[in-house]
Design a protein around this nucleic acid. Structure first.
Lengths: 225, 225
DNA sequence: AGTTGTGAAAAACTTCACAGCA
DNA sequence: TGCTGTGAAGTTTTTCACAACT
């Protein structure tokens, strides 16, 4: 039984492919035609062998002794990641973070189009952010249905995030990116991914602190000096 | 105080501890005195056995047959994560995202204090965001030195992120959280952590698309067109 | 009974090392 | 020669299963 390419690409690989795609796009724009795994890996901050293994998941297309053809690999990653077709996203919660996302041009070039911005605060409704008008929550279901939006982004306060999640799921969104600092429960079949900025900072702080400790080995963790 | 425990807590565990801490804080505020690993795990979105293993890294303190004492575990995680003492952070790049972070109250309660906001754009200098005044880049080194800031957050455009990173590192910052969509090179001993919002969306989109595909099995991903 | 703490098994991921090919 | 592609080894992380304890 021949199964040369397992149909599933590891999640860790997918995340890195997105990074490679960015680097390759920049290289292609700069007129570069080939790269070696070493150079590409350095630019992406990963190990060269790992990069080669990642690329091998897309039925890889390097040339031994030479390297990878920039545009070929770029296009192949685009195709696998589905960047080619644009995906409709709705964004709920137009506070500072929501506004920042709505206004960030980088998403458009990566195949994401915000087709609806929503907020519960009447003061924000009607405002224009990143070329879109903020709508009231009532319209959420209709917009999702009309635009076939498949992705929802939640940037609301934590208290309402779950109910927004429920509404998005019911409305037909299939993937949710959650910035609210709560763990969301979603029906099976709905993919929820969480980005927690405080957690990132805390991990960073912990690692930084840990780097200093191994000398003073047995002083307990929290001794104030 | 004997310390038979290995001094290193796995990074994956650290990230989850931060999540548990949030849940425990909410429970404590709600007057709850004990939780089982099952309930806590559900609230944090993880597997109960994994949660127990995570907590075991802090010399765990559950009661068999009963569960964990909410405040005890909360305090212990706080101590290990170093949330108790406040950490000085500087933030460079006061666009939408930078402003959102500066204005987010959640950081303060988690032990992070922004002690300096910086931007290169003269139009932004002097503005007040989240109770702090935006300063010009010239002052970066002085502020880092004066405040002993150990964490730097980069929310600048990609093009200048590397130079900001270099300046932060030279100024004495030891950990950097990078939101700019580039991979930064930093001197050894400096910890860089990256949050890439586009990558998160792309992974989400890929996983969503992948869920639909397994039917059409052999239409190859990489047919050279 | 009910729940923790943890060794041991399993899975996922990373790195190494080198064969294979241009 | 130089660089890719990949099996194999190594490491980390997750999951399981159950003894230990209240």
């Amino acid at each position: 039984m021949i199964q040369p390419r397992p149909r599933t690409i590891p999640e860790a690989t997918v995340a890195r492919l997105a990074v490679y795609l960015r680097v390759l796009t920049a290289l292609a724009d700069g007129g570069r035609s080939t790269v070696s795994s070493g150079e590409l890996a350095a630019a992406a901050g990963v190990n060269p062998a790992g990069l080669r293994k990642d690329l091998s998941h897309l039925g890889s297309c390097g040339v031994r002794g030479v390297g990878y053809e920039v545009r070929t690999v770029r296009d192949r990653i685009s195709r696998v990641l589905g960047v080619e077709r644009s995906r409709a996203c709705v964004l709920v919660g137009m506070g500072n973070l929501g506004s920042a996302l709505a206004d960030y041009a980088g998403f458009g070039s990566r195949g994401f189009a915000f087709v609806g911005l929503f907020d519960a605060d009447p003061a924000r409704i009607g405002q224009s952010i990143g070329g879109h008008t903020v709508r009231q929550m009532d319209e959420l279901e209709d917009v999702v249905a009309a635009t076939q939006a498949s992705i929802g982004v939640i940037t609301t306060p934590a208290e309402v995030a779950q109910s927004v999640c429920d509404r998005l799921a019911t409305a037909g969104v299939r993937s949710i990116l959650n910035f609210a600092p709560v763990t969301l429960a979603a029906p099976p079949g709905i993919d929820v991914r969480k980005v927690d900025l405080s957690v990132e900072l805390q991990v960073l702080a912990f690692l930084g602190q840990q780097r200093l400790v191994p000398a003073l080995d047995d002083t307990a963790v929290g001794e104030p000096a």
